[in-house]
Design a protein around this nucleic acid. Structure first.
Lengths: 201, 201
DNA sequence: CCGAAAGCATGACATCTGTCATGGCGGAGT
DNA sequence: ACTCCGCCATGACAGATGTCATGCTTTCGG
């Protein structure tokens, strides 16, 4: 019997996943949580064999949760599951100690297969996504450039960003300029988009 | 027996929904499709009582599909299901003839409940979302303002937008300016964000 | 210890953007 | 027929933005 922990902020898909996995004879869902910071406590309680974590969650990022979990309970294998097949996500998930990475475009069979494979010690990744991830490479952005872009995401003025980050306007403009150059974009908004789509946030 | 058609581009959540609904004794999933333009053909074949449509789908928008479906098969009740509880979506869904609107944050019980209620002729909407929808009101944007914002979404320069829309730069700037004013934003990026979150795209 | 690299800041400059005033055109409603 | 209203366009202008050169600190690895 493979004991599984589910983490997804959307109650509906979480419940649906539970129903689907519950249909398998050798799989049992032992815990469901809706926020990233509930993952480790729930895992401590229920000792799952496999944890299925969504990337987008309130409280704590699914990737950070994956890192914590594989630290706290090394016996628990982690599968990261996400809507967006962004190359950077895969890289970060693997770096966080995840054993599998599944996109929500996959078929149900692929998911239960991933659970079983991961449980038996294998690693599971979408080959196409792995290739793209290698092609995209690591983020060329420095930490501050990433910070600035992250705050710029919701479209404030330079003055707003400077206030939010406690930096001078000139510095913010420099970081933005560097980020724009590195992403090959022509405007701030484009740079944000590129960085977002590459999983560099 | 309530016959249900499922439409969602993500195979994993579609399969999971099917598994979940299949557990109910009085519900039967008779069709699953992954694109908006497959909805009506599949519905003609399988004559479902209820159609559960996601908003985000390739081929055809879930909202357009809802409109088509309620035209083509008035006997089939439509529930629109979406990740994002944007006020404008609800309004457009209802205008398209949908009988229910469910956010993916809802509980599994609420979904099966919605299917049963809708099947028995009732309408189902999230009260909180309905209130927000009424408060947000209709889009204040004119058609061209909406177009300009839609193209501005992926962050090009004014010249790019002008070229894409076959307008002069000055006109684009005017529309942007109007949109910025109407959305209460301070920059183009903010205006895009506001319009997007309100479902005015 | 010292150089390389990153963060931070300033100042200057060309360009882009947002705003405003103005005007012509076509359709909808009175 | 006349008048709004939206769409398109032009021109002008202040302010924001992106780029560049320069310099100072801190941290890190050789």
């Amino acid at each position: 019997m493979i004991k599984v922990l589910l983490a997804d902020d959307q109650a509906l898909v979480r419940g649906a996943f539970a129903a689907m996995l519950g249909l398998e004879a050798d799989i049992e869902v032992v815990a469901e949580v809706s926020a990233g910071d509930e993952v480790v406590p729930a895992a401590r309680r229920t000792k799952p064999d496999v944890a299925l974590l969504d990337v987008q969650m309130p409280g704590k990022d699914g990737l950070s949760a994956a890192a914590e979990l594989s630290q706290a309970l090394p016996s628990c294998r982690v599968i990261v599951c996400t809507t967006f097949g962004r190359p950077g996500y895969l890289a970060r998930a693997m770096a966080a100690g995840a054993a599998g990475f599944v996109v929500k475009d996959a078929t149900p069979e692929q998911l239960v297969d991933a659970v079983r494979r991961v449980h038996s010690g294998l690693r599971v990744v979408d080959p196409a996504l792995a290739a793209e991830s290698l092609a995209t490479g690591q983020s060329p952005l420095t930490d501050r450039e990433r910070d600035v872009l992250a705050v710029a995401r919701d479209g404030g003025t330079v003055a707003d960003l400077a206030k939010a980050l406690h930096l001078s306007e000139g510095t913010v403009r420099n970081h933005l300029s560097a980020a724009i150059g590195k992403t090959g974009a022509r405007t701030r908004a484009e740079a944000v988009k590129v960085a977002e789509d590459s999983g560099w946030l």
